[in-house]
Design a protein around this nucleic acid. Structure first.
Lengths: 247, 247
DNA sequence: CGACGCGCTTCCGTTCAGTGGAAGACTGGG
DNA sequence: CCCAGTCTTCCACTGAACGGAAGCGCGTCG
């Protein structure tokens, strides 16, 4: 992981944020040593900063001395989605879609160069699904990711195309091929993946527009892409409905 | 509000956190000037810190130049409740309780000297309910708050008792009276309020225990406290179930 | 049309908060 | 008992953070 490469010249704020960023789905509880290591800080520095974060409620220390994310961060974080209204508006459409298709349905936005899963309805299908609400995945290997990437600013596209990590044998790692696919996504109005993120899982996704801007993507995970026309149609109807409700 | 009392001696971290803390339910979008004012910082300082927070994704700047909480904070914040498992475990019990009583049902934890509402099922009853998921209320004027306060460390009790703000004419503002009520809460195993937070709304609440520790509170809002025995019973059954499921 | 007010951004010399190596405390295990 | 690992405290040096002041861009009013 990060290793302790105590970058000098980093601001205090960036260091405090690095400590918060040390937590993720797979690292929900960390010791001070792990925190210092993952944030690339010397221990005394990490110790002091973590102390401040705990005092404020951004982090919490449990009885066994480990640190975890605190409630204060949770309730402030809640303001992010509420303020766009996206989740609330999309919720009924996700349920409708699920009812009509019985597939796992996803709502995602782009944040930086990641896809961020904002909401999800899990089908009981036997398809492996790696995403969960709040998780981040690379854009080049997911349906919603390709949709959001196709509509992203050029600088973001360049950054993503420059680093296409392999996840399965079918993951697209050639910039040229992905670029052509993105063009096709713009033409067709939807994106698809075939086992690029997870073996045995395919996906379809369409953009959600608020006026002319693509603000999110709607996707589903499937065992295969047969019946694609009907499913894309259903996705587009829902996406248009959500976009309209967003005003 | 805060006013600009540029407290010298404050650490950089505490200032950055103060900027995050400037956002709440009623202030989801703020201009730089408002942020600087609410955090008590001079504008140039706020400007620099906000820039760093935006670069990291803790805040986002929308097209009209205002700032809002960013997705990055949302997804890290999600790790707080997930890591305790409280919401997931309690969810079915909340639904059962709602089904059995048709009252607005609440799940809350203590964070510092506030009650933090972690989950909620809103009844369509005509009772005014001021809480929502993620909101913070004072402990002395809510049912769940009294429960959590009664089981809180002494230092927390002292801090709360020292500052009993009046919210309605029925809010308890005398430390002695509240202290006696808290003792009764410990004896009886439940707390109640009568229009102390909001006119026309009463409440009942019970503690949720994980082993010997009180980790949360379960409450309901009602138009009156008649039938209290049955309702407290239902709450206690649910609370015990949740506690057991928490392991 | 120019002057003004307002919110935001940049500049830069001063200074004090932050730094991190080193040493000390605590804990558990062999 | 000692040692290894983790956490906490200390403190003298230093460069990052500070914030007053000045500059910018824009809409508004006289």
């Amino acid at each position: 992981m990060a290793g302790n490469s105590s970058t000098p010249g980093a601001t205090v704020t960036s260091r405090a944020l690095a400590l918060l960023g040390a937590f993720d789905e797979h690292h929900r509880r960390l010791t001070l040593t792990e925190l210092a290591d993952r944030a690339g800080l010397p221990m005394p520095t990490a110790h002091r900063l973590v102390g401040e974060l705990v005092a404020w409620g951004a982090l919490a220390r449990n009885t066994s001395g480990e640190y975890a994310v605190g409630w204060r961060l949770w309730d402030i974080g809640l303001l992010a989605p509420v303020q766009t209204g996206l989740r609330e508006v999309a919720s009924p459409y996700l349920h409708d879609l699920y009812g009509a298709t019985l597939a796992t349905v996803h709502l995602a936005v782009r944040d930086g160069t990641d896809v961020l899963y904002v909401d999800r309805l899990a089908g009981h299908a036997s398809v492996p699904v790696v995403s969960s609400v709040g998780s981040r995945l690379p854009m080049h290997a997911t349906g919603v990711g390709k949709v959001l990437l196709a509509h992203a600013p050029l600088e973001v596209q360049h950054a993503v195309l420059a680093d296409l990590s392999r996840i399965t044998p079918y993951t697209i790692t050639q910039p040229g091929l992905l670029r052509r696919q993105l063009a096709k996504v713009l033409r067709d109005g939807y994106a698809s993946t075939t086992e690029e993120m997870s073996l045995g899982a395919c996906s379809l996704a369409v953009p959600i527009r608020r006026g002319p801007d693509v603000v999110a993507a709607l996707g589903m995970v499937l065992p295969s892409l047969k019946d694609r026309a009907r499913l894309v149609g259903a996705l587009q109807v829902a996406a248009r409905g959500i976009g309209r409700s967003l005003g």
